[in-house]
């Protein structure tokens, strides 16, 4: 747990559109250890998705140092998995083919791994179903299985459970923690939900908008499995909430000035 997997130093990102210049990220510094679970929260528009896309290699037009295992990030690669807010399945492929992607299911090794993942996300019986036959939660589970098949070192999740109901969401959180514990995957998990951030993260990164920057990083020193009803959890949640509210106040005052 000592090795630093991801090192971000003085990361700046500016979007230039014909009529304005948006500073999406300013002077971001963040170091993530191998196997660490980081959650990121912050008001809408503070650059959370932008940050994840840069780490994923989907956006390479940035300034600063962003290194994964000592290598500057220059594009997507198989070590980096990404789970989007919406499942983004290929509607013309069945569940198992969506998970396999451009790997062939005829290969018994691929087939075995795909079916193991289908069991992991509890979708047995749906191997041959098309995405239109799945509920939102089921589709999102397929997209998680798809990301896991490539055994990424680091998994980037952009509000992956945002569209799910409370019941499915808590089930998915358990599934994700399970995967994290078995595979030791480094996780960076963006969410709007404070409860989720505290429940999952070993550290919570709080971001602030205009321009997007990191306001504070709070360690959550609670052992897993965590219990939402426990006093310690409630306490932790309150601490993070306090910090978060400060951010919101600031962002509203800035907002009011515009």
């Amino acid at each position: 747990m000592s090795e630093r997997a991801l090192v971000i130093e003085r990361l700046n990102k500016i979007f230039t559109t014909p009529n304005e210049r948006v500073v999406a990220l300013r002077e971001i510094d963040l170091q993530v250890k191998q196997g660490e679970f980081i959650t990121v929260i912050g008001p809408s528009g503070c650059g959370k998705s932008t940050l994840l896309k840069i780490v994923a290699g989907l956006d390479v037009e940035y300034d600063g140092k962003v290194e994964l295992n000592g290598q500057q990030i220059k594009g997507p690669s198989l070590e980096k998995g990404f789970i989007f807010q919406e499942p983004r399945l290929f509607p013309w492929l069945t569940v198992e083919k969506n998970i396999a992607g451009d790997q062939s299911l005829k290969d018994p090794k691929v087939r075995g791994k795909v079916h193991e993942l289908i069991r992991l996300v509890k979708l047995e019986g749906f191997e041959k179903a098309y995405p239109k036959e799945l509920s939102g939660g089921m589709a999102q589970r397929v997209s998680i299985a798809r990301a896991l098949l490539r055994k990424p070192d680091i998994l980037l999740l952009d509000e992956p459970f945002g569209a799910l109901d409370a019941f499915t969401r808590s089930h998915m959180q358990e599934v994700l923690l399970n995967i994290w514990e078995t595979n030791k995957t480094t996780m960076i998990f963006v969410t709007h939900d404070l409860d989720e951030a505290v429940f999952l993260g070993q550290r919570v990164v709080i971001m602030n908008p205009r321009p997007g920057h990191i306001k504070s990083v709070l360690p959550i020193e609670l052992s897993f499995p965590r219990k939402r009803s426990s006093l310690a959890f409630q306490e932790m949640r309150r601490t993070v909430l306090n910090e978060f509210e400060k951010v919101e106040e600031e962002s509203y005052t800035v907002g009011a000035g515009i």
Partner: peptide, 8 residues
């Protein structure tokens, strides 16, 4: 974007 992430 998905196909790029998955390195098709």
């Amino acid at each position: 974007e998905v196909s790029e992430i998955l390195q098709f």
